[in-house]
């Protein structure tokens, strides 16, 4: 078979986004060609995208083979599991205290849980740890201060690298160095307005 699996997925992705866009665009007034409403341009754009998606999809049957990377069984099961776990964490976040009543803090918790759960499978581990590291930064920054947020980010991101897991002392050294550098650049020099230490506000 000459099927290009990457192009099949690409075409499907373009079609899916275009269809969603067209559906959402029903809320917007199209207007006329003379006085175009807010929905006119989105309509044009999504129809063009739909057409392109279909072309990509059609051509995928002739210009392969180009298979997707193999998913292990764990990769395939952990993806939906992590999405469910993340959604549950997001939905029930307000239970864990008033901090999570804020929309973005709840969202952040959901994303963090989702990304950490998906790390259980090897295929998603790097993506999961790197994204989780940025999520924990946002969760900790405003209440916990820059230093704590950075330390947690570096700690989680280090999990993505096997060499770091073997030698935690190196991570500690790196953390201290980066904390000092960020303090000097962003606090001392640039004066960005964030809490530096926990419970500063």
């Amino acid at each position: 078979m000459k099927i290009n699996a990457k192009d099949v997925a690409s075409g499907a992705l373009l079609i899916l986004i275009a269809a969603t866009g067209l559906w959402l665009n029903q809320d917007h007034n199209l207007g006329s060609a003379r006085r175009m409403g807010p929905g006119y341009m989105p309509m044009l754009v999504f129809y063009v995208q739909l057409a392109l998606g279909m072309i990509v999809l059609a051509m995928a049957f002739f210009n392969g083979p180009d298979p997707l990377e193999k998913w292990t069984k764990a990769d395939a099961t952990m993806l939906p599991v992590s999405i469910i776990a993340g959604t549950l964490a997001w939905y029930f976040a307000p239970v864990f205290g008033s901090f999570f009543e804020n929309t973005y803090n709840a969202l952040g918790l959901g994303m963090l849980v989702g990304f950490l759960v998906v790390c259980y499978s090897m295929g998603w581990r790097l993506l999961g740890f790197i994204c989780a590291a940025m999520c924990i930064f946002s969760l900790l920054l405003e209440k916990g201060g820059l230093m704590l947020a950075l330390a947690a980010t570096i700690g989680i991101s280090a999990l993505a690298e096997p060499e770091h897991r073997a030698r935690p002392l190196g991570v500690l050294g790196l953390t201290i160095f980066l904390l000092a550098m960020c303090w000097w650049i962003f606090i001392k020099q640039l004066d960005i307005r964030v809490a530096v230490w926990p419970l500063q506000y």
């Binding site: 790197i130 820059l146 980010t153 060499e163 790196l174």
Partner: peptide, 13 residues
């Protein structure tokens, strides 16, 4: 292994 946590931290801030 030392560079990528630094990039990540700078991007986050």
């Amino acid at each position: 292994k030392f560079l990528y946590p630094a990039i990540l931290v700078f991007c986050s801030i």
